[in-house]
Design a protein around this nucleic acid. Structure first.
Lengths: 245, 245
DNA sequence: GGGCGGCTTTGATTTTGATCAAGTTGCCGA
DNA sequence: TCGGCAACTTGATCAAAATCAAAGCCGCCC
């Protein structure tokens, strides 16, 4: 399914090697590479670092448009709800992803931390000023949008056409490939989402998710400790179960 | 669900009022508004107009990255397939949408016409040259990407959390609001997709789609002639059935 | 250490939508 | 006007996942 291919991840990653935000000691998810030293300093001066607890909204429904943020560590869920409460997680963001919507146009999205998450945020107006000054910055934001679009479309195939078993395996594969992007695909990791969150991501119920995880365990596709820690003996096997070519 | 809000559609639409491509007598989906007369002429000279028959690929898997195109009339399906043939339509594009992927990074997407479709296409290199010359052009492409991202995420909620009945109603609502963007929401229209296509868009089977359409007809939510022509007596009613707030 | 509450698992049953299998309808060409 | 074919509908049955209902498990606070 290549939600994010290795190559793509590297493209994004390589570009932010040089510049580190002085204020929060973090790379700004690739946005800094295109800025001058002065602009970087400007950005740093206005950025604030915050730790967000699980379940806490990073930026509320409409507020999303008021600021931009870089994820330093942790995982953020982007979700949508129906009026009767049914919920769907429409995206996950991992460090060092960049969050925030260019050009106001709120899309009824809620962003909240799935686990303890550190972010470095700066106000919309600073960002907008920099966009007009640095020609390459919009290009970077554009690439981020295209990356998210690809991920969303890949996930649509999972939501619409895969079985519960394949969905759960696909989810585990995504986590394995994203949880620690520095080191590529992880074969052992902690799930950043509760069963309820996983269900909301997969369009399933908690019970079905639990049963499928149990089945994967019994079939020796994964090993589990504490219901959160997962070990994958064979990534090929997992991908095969996930329906990934 | 506001897959595309009226306002958003207008934003995109208003911006291309002034410029019409001389070669194909069509507006280039909002990309021309940002170009100078010379650049427009340049673009026109390289553009070719084509009619695509239903089922025909507009641009194949990898080729998508070789050219850009503006939809003059018709509907294009963007879809993905699993290795065993299961298929999911991940997006629909209507006139006057702009198609094509900036920066090569193929995402295994197939684009094919759902009905007779006229497009005006131009080669990647011309487009890329213009992007570097006209600063506003990338901005436009960026907005298009964000629009598609919003639509994809709205649809993920539909795929993951709605019932078959709500899915079908949501589909009809999308068609009603997109089929003739000039005139806003249509209360009578021809379905641009076959039952099989609808099923692939909704993550359902043909039979389920058919049964739900029958049910909507029996419940007087819609009227149907020839299995393709739909009349919606009350758009509010349809939206309510679709689970749209 | 004991109990409480949230998260997770497991089991029994029901429901929704898929699958299998005929029919219809409508269109097109002979 | 008559096949013939593809698209669509309808019906019967089946299976996957949802729902309803208890337990476990684990960490935390007293």
């Amino acid at each position: 399914m290549q939600i994010v291919t290795e190559q793509r991840r590297k493209d994004i990653h390589n570009s932010d090697i040089p510049s580190v935000c002085a204020a929060c000691e973090a790379r700004h998810g690739g946005v800094c590479g295109t800025l001058s030293a002065d602009q970087l300093l400007d950005l740093s001066r206005h950025s604030t670092r915050r730790r967000i607890e699980p379940g806490r909204e990073v930026v509320g429904q409409g507020e999303m448009t008021d600021s931009y943020a870089n994820i330093i560590s942790g995982v953020v869920k982007l979700s949508k709800v129906l009026s009767d409460g049914r919920q769907q997680i429409v995206g996950l963001q991992f460090a060092p992803d960049f969050m925030g919507r260019p050009f106001t146009r709120e899309s009824a999205l809620t962003a909240e931390a799935a686990i303890d998450t550190d972010i470095c945020s700066f106000p919309r107006n600073v960002m907008e000023r920099l966009v007009t000054e640095a020609p390459g910055l919009e290009h970077r934001l554009h690439e981020q949008a295209l990356k998210e679009l690809d991920e969303a479309r890949d996930w649509m195939l999972t939501l619409g056409r895969k079985t519960a078993q394949e969905k759960v395996a696909s989810f585990l594969y995504i986590i394995a490939t994203h949880i620690d992007p520095e080191n590529g695909t992880a074969t052992a990791f902690d799930l950043p989402l509760s069963r309820a969150d996983i269900a909301d991501y997969l369009g399933l119920t908690i019970e079905t998710v639990s049963r499928q995880i149990t089945k994967l365990r019994k079939d020796n596709v994964i090993r589990i400790e504490n219901s959160r820690h997962v070990t994958v003996p064979s990534m090929d096997r997992l991908m095969h179960v996930a329906g990934i070519d």
